[in-house]
Nucleic acid binder design. Structure first.
Lengths: 335, 335
DNA sequence: AGTTAGTTATGAATCGTTTCAAGCTTAAGT
DNA sequence: ACTTAAGCTTGAAACGATTCATAACTAACT
């Protein structure tokens, strides 16, 4: 069907080797020949077959990336940062969505291995390291994104979630709130448990302060709304006076849920703070306080680190890049 | 480096053909042999080389998709719908971001051709059909997404943007507003011009109503904010009393921009309506009126149509699926 | 014993690109 | 005229999975 180098070679009356040279090292070919070959290429509408090229090369020109939720603007931004950096090295990024599910994660990793990707960027869906170990034994370079594990041999680019959680909770406490609630996601996700740990620490530093924890099945707007409605449905005395949501999606949903049926006011009745500082946070019904993470820079740095690891697995460079979270105060948490 | 079928064959003491059969038609192989081969596969950590498989097969197991902005929740939802449907047929979706730029679009299309994708879903960045014609001559099946062109031989899945624009503007007029403004994006984008055309039509039906048009370089939150600030900066008599934004991202930004420095109130001073009804619309500072499009269903249907086209290019089925937009009224447009 | 049908396994050929040692041509130098 | 070098081009080999015609073997018949 489609034209091959052989067809081009015949049309231009040269050998296949020369066609390949025109494609890959035109400076090694006589100008007149280049022109003739290019003419044949255009005439036949020849397009390189990447599968054959990869087969010969033994590896692909792509890296795999798995995020928890591509619909979350935070991860969308991280992915964009990664793509931009990868593009500089003429690599493309295969993006997969685990939806916080380990099996989907495994499925994508299998796909990536079949594709012979150069490396993998991953925000693991679970603290179980089985999938990571498998990558390691397969000899595939890995960089953990927005996640860090005890095993220091794994490269990672992360933000200190414990500190971020502390920042958020301490801020609520400083506003005079004492009955805090943490609305999180599955405790299998490290970000969630770390942010919670930071919050716990902050609460323990203030006498009389309490922290209730509610676990939702996923970090989505819908779950946030459900949590909000559940709070509204409670007796007034059982309601928290401040809520720390594990991410902005939950927080946005919470605002909706809390206000439903003319329920509770934010921040008067309940102060609220989210996490990630996505674009929409500042545009929410009540502009949302949040904890900012440098999303694009994380993606950028992750690819950078991956490339280093590929080039020199044993090299002398920092294997764990850590950014610091930043508190962003808006109306949702301050009267 | 990595194990190949040949290595597996040696380890299991069978021929390479048998290994391939175990992989692809295990029912044709004696159970005992299957077991032996599987053991060898696990032992060696063998993973199929997809490049070799594709080379032999002559085509890939993927389809290409190009959207205007993957960070826009509307397109994220369309892409998700497409992926879900593709997954049912064991196809993966290569997602590319044109950022409304024709050159980036071309670059992705080249990449897709090298990958020998089975077909392409595309929301064109321009009304110029050069890229589409190139796909056609290359014999690559195409389905236009959220976009329709005069040439009826191209398949498309779209929503009637003229009707949507009419719905939005008519609604604003019905609220008693007369000095309308349309905040759009580059006029090269068909959605923008169609929505504007619908709005123009609605305005022409009401005597005394006017429509001012402002063109922003892209349909983003940031541009919306800029437009909002520009409106605030005007003399009061020159301000519109209602704004129709070409999408929700612009609208969200407009809310921010209009309210900046305690500027204008929405909807009292200026009524506002967006387009797409993304999740965040209902959670905006002022819950946003919008025009809803069935995003996931669009993605789903687009893949469905693409598969039909691939299976039978000449078949007897509807080549242009058209959904109808739906007005969603919230606080931003009604007092 | 001989034929047939059925089941299972084989291995060479193939896909399209890249690589690289070897060959050819021309120009320059002695 | 002869050598050397430099510049271009060649074509076979290789990458790894799949296919398919063919072979080998069994079992079940006459």
């Amino acid at each position: 069907m489609a034209a091959s180098v052989r067809d081009v070679a015949v049309a231009a009356a040269v050998s296949v080797g020369t066609v390949s040279n025109v494609l890959n090292r035109p400076e090694k070919v006589a100008p007149a020949t280049v022109e003739r070959v290019m003419a044949a290429i255009n005439e036949l509408g020849f397009v390189r077959n990447d599968a054959a090229r990869q087969l010969r090369a033994g590896r692909s020109r792509s890296i795999g990336m798995i995020v928890l939720d591509a619909g979350n603007p935070f991860f969308a931004a991280v992915a964009r940062g990664a793509e931009e950096r990868a593009d500089e090295d003429h690599l493309s990024v295969l993006l997969g969505n685990s939806d916080e599910d380990v099996d989907r994660e495994s499925a994508y990793l299998d796909l990536f291995r079949e594709q012979r990707v150069n490396g993998v960027l991953i925000t693991p869906a679970s603290s179980a390291t089985a999938n990571l170990e498998r990558l390691r034994t397969a000899g595939i370079p890995v960089v953990l994104v927005d996640h860090e594990i005890a095993d220091t041999s794994f490269c990672s680019v992360s933000v200190d979630d414990v500190e971020g959680g502390h920042l958020a909770a301490a801020h609520l406490l400083q506003q005079g709130r004492r009955r805090l609630m943490f609305v999180g996601g599955p405790s299998s996700i490290a970000q969630v448990t770390n942010r919670l740990e930071g919050a716990r620490r902050a609460v323990s530093e203030v006498s009389g302060a309490t922290l209730e924890v509610i676990e939702m099945p996923a970090l989505t707007v819908l779950n946030g709304r459900a949590a909000g409605e559940a709070i509204v449905a409670r007796e007034a005395s059982l309601r928290p006076d401040a809520v720390f949501a594990a991410n902005d999606l939950l927080a946005v949903g919470l605002v909706q849920g809390l206000r439903i049926f003319g329920g509770l006011r934010v921040p008067e009745d309940i102060a609220l703070i989210g996490y990630d500082d996505i674009d929409f946070a500042s545009a929410a019904v009540v502009p949302l306080s949040s904890v900012r993470q440098p999303a694009e820079e994380i993606g950028h740095t992750a690819v950078e680190l991956l490339l280093k690891t590929i080039a020199d697995p044993e090299g002398d460079y920092e294997r764990r890049v850590r950014f610091r979270p930043e508190l962003v105060v808006r109306e949702s948490s301050s009267v």
